[in-house]
């Protein structure tokens, strides 16, 4: 066992983990932050995407110990403390960008990374291209693309 400390959604957390513990396990099992999901075991599906020091990463392909001292944001950390949704969360609801909801946290966290890298004015081609690391089996992506385009614009306001 080793001790790991990091900041998760603005709070300092510490836990004892085996070195083989993945970040996603640490979040889900130690911290009970179950919004970060696991949809595959080959780093393809993106259901586990979180922000590691502000940058999107797959929590299933990151060891908890690699995050010593890091700042992590998960889907649970996006809304404001008073419960006001992040514009990207709001856009996913408004544009029906989710059905079963399982890929959704990863989609939203990845969408924010697309905005970070490409700005607030996103065209359809860019969004589709940059969603390469996330799989959705329900929506056919049509409404996810619309949601991200609108969410990105709303974030600029």
């Amino acid at each position: 066992m080793a001790t790991v400390s990091m900041t998760v959604n603005g709070k300092a957390v510490t836990g004892d983990v085996e070195p083989r513990t993945l970040l996603v396990q640490f979040l889900r099992e130690n911290l009970r932050l179950t919004g970060t999901h696991v949809g595959c075991d080959t780093s393809q599906c993106g259901a586990c995407v979180i922000h590691l020091d502000g940058i999107a990463a797959k929590a299933c392909t990151t060891l908890a110990l690699q995050c010593e001292g890091a700042s992590i944001t998960t889907i649970e950390g996006l809304a404001e403390p008073d419960g006001k949704l992040h514009p990207m969360q709001e856009a996913f609801r408004e544009h029906h960008g989710l059905q079963c909801g399982y890929c959704t946290p990863g989609m939203i966290m990845s969408a924010l990374d697309i905005v970070r890298r490409n700005g607030n004015n996103l065209d359809e081609h860019t969004i589709r291209d940059q969603l390469d690391g996330n799989i959705c089996r329900c929506t056919g992506y049509h409404n996810i693309v619309k949601a991200i385009e609108a969410g990105a614009k709303a974030m600029a306001k």
Binding site: R28, T74, I75, P105
Partner: peptide, 21 residues
Amino acid sequence: VRRKEDFRFITGQGQYTDDVV
């Protein structure tokens, strides 16, 4: 109508089987 169920999913508060402890 916008979906009632969405709030819990977009905030990471869905309860899937593996989330039940």
